[in-house]
């Protein structure tokens, strides 16, 4: 079987979702680590240093392009699969007792993913977008720490960020383990371990992210 066909069957598309999803999970870890530097409460010194490295290093900037490509693939393929799978049922059931046999968030990955995407668009337009624009137009890097501090004084922005983190958490709760199941690792030997790590990851990482706007809003970080 050649490569093109390998990724075009239903399992092939599932592999696309799994591999891009795992890459996005890796990104989350890095992003979370870098941004957690604000919790040193040192006026943003360590955070700015790390953000400067991420924003100017050639290798990181190249990987950033790959990250966007994978993100787009994950979103587009995910939505296409959702539409196609929905159509496969044909006539819908008059009565459905889905909650007795599966989790709502497992069935709602497209909805949760869309919420995360909407949040992401807002998020990028607040920080990443203006910063890269300033860089490419020769005005240099922006002071992201000050921007964070200012943005997170606005109540509705803080609320949207918290909701975005909640959507991300539910999305990960299914997605993390699912990615490994797709790679064939959902065996009796690894299932418990991977599910455990998945649950921990899906709770801890979104909480750390949510604590960032909360901390600025509450004045815990200045």
């Amino acid at each position: 079987m050649n490569w093109k066909n390998a990724f075009s069957t239903s399992i092939g598309k599932k592999l696309q979702m799994s591999l891009t999803g795992l890459f996005l999970i890796l990104f989350l870890i890095v992003h979370c680590y870098i941004n957690a530097q604000i919790f040193y409460n040192d006026g943003g010194v360590r955070f700015t240093e790390a953000a400067h490295f991420m924003g100017t290093n050639f290798v990181i900037r190249t990987i950033e392009l790959g990250l966007f490509a994978f993100l787009i693939l994950h979103v587009v393929q995910g939505l296409l699969l959702w539409a196609k799978n929905r159509a496969r049922r044909g006539t819908r059931y008059a009565v459905s007792a889905g909650n007795q046999t599966s989790r709502w968030y497992s069935r709602s990955m497209a909805l949760l993913g869309t919420l995360v995407l909407l949040f992401l668009i807002l998020h990028l337009s607040k920080f990443w977008g203006p910063n890269r624009l300033s860089q490419t137009t020769g005005h240099g890097e922006l002071d992201l720490f000050t921007m964070m501090r200012d943005e997170f004084q606005v109540t509705w922005i803080v609320i949207v960020y918290i909701l975005g983190c909640i959507a991300l958490g539910w999305h990960l709760l299914h997605g993390f383990y699912s990615a490994f199941q797709t790679l064939g690792l959902g065996t009796s030997k690894y299932k418990g371990l991977l599910k455990g790590i998945g649950v921990a990851f899906s709770i801890i990482v979104p909480i750390i992210f949510a604590l960032m706007p909360i901390s600025f809003y509450m004045g815990w970080i200045s």
């Binding site: 599932k14 196609k84 799978n85 497992s106 069935r107």
Partner: peptide, 12 residues
Amino acid sequence: FGSCTNIGACEA
């Protein structure tokens, strides 16, 4: 047939 998204209703 649709494609599997690891929902798990089948097993249940």
